[in-house]
């Protein structure tokens, strides 16, 4: 069997990459310390961008929602709308987008520069499994951290809605909190976590794949980062549609 590193780019190599990673998940050690390390990097680097994106977006939802609900005199439904919109759609997509742009991109940049500077080859020369040491912990960290970022983003989005509705438009705060969970179901909570875990897997795999196989010197690292962000975002937006259809289409 040809070695993974010597395969030419394309679908067989990508499939093989995912397959070898899957095989390493079920066999052998997982390096929990490295996973924790990458989780911390990912969380500490993505948390602020996630907050800074979902907060204004929650504010925008409140603003537009109030514009529409004022027509019907249904302002009390505002917080229910915000929690549904943020929980089901905005926070999963925006948080994952920021995790891809910040964490995924930095994974690709790290692995890419390790590949260019022949550090990955050096690990292989020392008979250390580079996939297990460099790639797998990053993928697992992305799968665990993305749902956490989604929950953080949900909190920020709902807080942003509260700022606009209560502080700026003077809606009663009690009504806001009382109706917050009126339309959300348990499905929204675990469905969102499940969805973002899948998004995290897509981000982790894309980022490590692009970084691990980066070629062409310093510009190659830039290309790897670029492709990581674009392809992982496209990938999880498409997955989002499929998952939403499956989860809510079958629910009553």
């Amino acid at each position: 069997m040809t070695r993974l590193a010597s395969m030419s780019p394309g679908l067989p190599r990508a499939t093989r990459f995912c397959g070898e990673l899957g095989q390493r998940v079920v066999t052998g050690t997982m390096y929990p310390a490295l996973i924790a390390d990458h989780m911390w990097t990912l969380a500490s680097r993505s948390a602020l961008p996630v907050l800074a994106t979902t907060l204004p977006t929650g504010m925008v939802v409140a603003l537009q929602g109030l514009n529409v609900f004022d027509l019907f005199g249904a302002q009390r439904l505002l917080s229910s709308l915000i929690s549904v919109a943020v929980f089901r759609e905005l926070s999963p997509v925006l948080s994952s987008m920021l995790v891809a742009a910040q964490g995924g991109a930095s994974f690709a940049a790290e692995l890419g520069s390790m590949r260019i500077q022949e550090e990955i080859d050096a690990t292989e020369v020392m008979a250390i499994d580079s996939l297990r040491l460099h790639v797998l912990p990053r993928v697992i960290a992305a799968v665990i951290t993305t749902p956490l970022m989604h929950l953080l983003g949900t909190g920020a989005g709902i807080a942003g809605g509260w700022v606009v509705a209560v502080l700026m438009r003077g809606e009663p705060s009690g009504v806001y909190w009382a109706n917050l969970w009126a339309l959300t179901q348990p499905l929204d909570l675990w469905g969102g976590v499940l969805k973002t875990a899948v998004f995290g897997l897509i981000i982790g795999l894309t980022a490590t794949y692009r970084g691990y196989f980066a070629t062409g010197g310093a510009p190659g690292v830039g290309v790897a980062v670029n492709e990581t962000v674009v392809q992982s975002v496209l990938g999880f937006v498409a997955a989002n549609y499929v998952l939403t259809s499956l989860m809510y289409g079958s629910a009553p």
Partner: peptide, 25 residues
């Protein structure tokens, strides 16, 4: 260095996404 290019690219996309979200509001 290659790391510098990667980091610059990374910073570009994150900063612009955040700034656009805030300016959108």
């Amino acid at each position: 260095g290659p790391r510098g290019v990667g980091d610059a690219t990374n910073a570009a996309v994150v900063t612009s996404a955040v700034v656009c979200a805030v300016v959108n509001y």
